[in-house]
Design a protein around this nucleic acid. Structure first.
Lengths: 134, 134
DNA sequence: ATACAACTTGAAGTTAACTTTAACTCAAGT
DNA sequence: ACTTGAGTTAAAGTTAACTTCAAGTTGTAT
């Protein structure tokens, strides 16, 4: 199956400029140019799927590219890939922990300012932070 | 209690340049300058604590600053603050979801490349992705 | 034939959140 | 008095991941 850049743009909800950028930095390879237009196939769809997954794990684009070069000779590079993935797993877990702490903080603020808002509507005394979040 | 910039730098594990930067962009206010040196007090410690919490929730610095200005008249601004926090709560939850999806992807890669690594050591045939992660 | 939309290129611009640099001041210790 | 180390400033530089721009080309519809 063949795809234009607009096909992929829609499929992955990425601007065409981003897809060209990924090619430029070596994340997308072997892109055919037919009539001076880019033409992609399913290998590129797979690549973009993988890229999106890695991006969700916060892997930087140059690490993603490194992964793809390792992957070409995965027998020799399995251990390097494993290190990379385990490293990133730890970072991703840390990021989740930080987000969860942040979320807890937000929830406290939401609880407190809900009461503040209520008090204002009722002309009643404002709550104190320590009373709401002891 | 009074603190030098180095005290805060150590306490929050932030470079002094970052603390100066936060003052410059209005996140830290009313910093005394004694003998042309910055001198902080507990209100600044509280501020930095709050900033760190919001940063964990991915709130951008200019939103954090906006929060602090709203907070000065919290009775009038409770609803604005609530909107802001609820908005950010949704974004933070989305970010957690994305990270968890990313984590799942990493774990699959780790499973697969562990087997690849084993196979290489045993001179046995390499696994297939579909067999490992069906 | 002509207009138009979609695509092309390389280069420059954008954004957030810092970081670095250069040149300077100041107080304390030897 | 002199050195050292911590702090000061404004301005410029950095990084990642794009995005925008200007100028040109191509295929299709009228």
């Amino acid at each position: 199956m063949k795809y234009t850049i607009t096909d992929l743009s829609k499929k992955f909800d990425l601007p065409a400029s981003t897809i060209r950028y990924y090619e430029k930095i070596g994340l997308l390879e072997n892109v055919e140019h037919i009539n001076s237009r880019r033409s992609y196939d399913d290998s590129h769809v797979d690549r973009l799927n993988a890229i999106e997954c890695f991006k969700k794990a916060l892997l930087p684009l140059d690490e993603i590219r490194l992964f793809f070069t390792y992957e070409k000779d995965m027998a020799s590079n399995a251990d390097k890939i494993l290190d990379m993935m385990k490293d990133q797993e730890a970072k991703t877990l840390d990021a989740i922990d930080a987000l969860q702490a942040g979320l807890t903080h937000l929830k406290k603020k939401i609880r407190f300012y809900s009461l503040v808002s209520e008090s204002v509507k009722n002309n009643s005394p404002l709550p104190k932070w320590e009373d709401v979040n002891p």
